[in-house]
């Protein structure tokens, strides 16, 4: 049996409450462990090193579970991707979450990977970020201040600042993500690239949401992944679609605008050309799907 201690780790903490956890965070130089599916891989690859304290947050019951209150749905940070897949009530009210979870990594990774981890990891290709941006979600960040737990809420669209970077301060713990329960008529769709049904890191991911009434799309949200330093809300595409009749011309205009919104790069997974191409293809598909259903 290998020791769990790794070079650099001096202390291991496994708090049972958010209050205890944020007090540990307040000490500084703490690495937070949830599912570990991103963390351990990145440490092994030498991209990050553990802080002095490794804090396992998996025993904090308050971070678990999906709940609904006052018209808002809250998903605890420790909710796994498998939990999302298995939650029939959630799938009923927000189908796009299950649809996305069904394309996420592999079954083994889904069992361990958490929503909170997927957000904090801030990969431009993070799959679960896309539907949560479509839902205009907020994240809740907790910290220890003046002898008590203090929380603040940040709009998810303002949360990411670059690849692997967010506005979360080192002493803050992401506790949950919340969003307004979608109204009737709200449609949201997700698509990602890749021939593989599993274990496919997104070359491009895309999401479209809005309310379609009498053929007119409103409250439009367009999200693109893996085509910019952060997953992004595609403002030009949203403007091109908002309030328009969702016909062939609008779809083409929306898809073209989405291409203008993104700034993809050439890398080992795809060229910028292919990413642009897929953005257009996915936008056309998603919008057509919304228009037809």
């Amino acid at each position: 049996m290998e020791s769990i201690t790794q070079p650099g780790i001096e202390a291991y903490e496994a708090p049972a409450s958010i209050a205890d956890a944020v007090q540990v965070l307040a000490r500084g130089d703490v690495t937070v462990l949830a599912g570990g599916t991103d963390l351990t891989v990145q440490v092994d690859a030498g991209r990050i090193t553990y802080g002095k304290t490794l804090m396992n947050i998996r025993r904090i019951a308050e971070l678990q579970g999906v709940s609904e209150a006052g018209g808002r749905i809250s998903i605890g940070a420790l909710t796994t991707v498998t939990n999302i897949l298995d939650d029939d009530a959630l799938a009923q009210s927000v189908p796009v979450l299950r649809a996305t979870a069904d394309r996420f990594a592999s079954m083994q990774i889904r069992n361990a990977a958490t929503i909170g981890g997927n957000l904090v990891n801030a990969s431009p290709a993070g799959d679960m970020i896309v539907p949560l941006l479509l839902l205009d979600a907020d994240v809740e960040l907790a910290s220890w201040r003046d002898g008590a737990v203090s929380t603040r809420s940040v709009a998810l669209k303002d949360f990411f600042t670059g690849p692997g970077k967010t506005v979360r301060a080192d002493n803050e713990l992401l506790t949950r993500v919340t969003f307004a329960k979608p109204a009737a008529g709200f449609a949201a769709r997700f698509e990602k690239s890749g021939p593989r049904p599993a274990l496919e890191i997104s070359t491009v991911s895309a999401g479209v949401a809005g309310t379609l009434e009498n053929g007119v799309l409103s409250n439009v949200r367009v999200v693109l992944g893996a085509v910019a330093p952060t997953p992004l809300r595609a403002a030009k595409a949203e403007a091109a679609l908002e309030g328009k009749t969702l016909d062939g011309d609008t779809i083409a205009a929306g898809a073209a605008a989405a291409c203008d919104d993104c700034t993809p790069i050439d890398d080992v997974r795809a060229s910028a050309w292919y990413r642009h191409h897929l953005v257009r293809v996915f936008m056309e598909r998603l919008l057509t799907d919304v228009a037809e259903n």
Partner: peptide
């Protein structure tokens, strides 16, 4: 070698 890992060197997976 730009893709020295199974994430970016894509062998066939069972569902394919």
């Amino acid at each position: 070698v730009r893709n020295p890992n199974f994430r970016d060197y894509k062998v066939m997976t069972a569902p394919e």
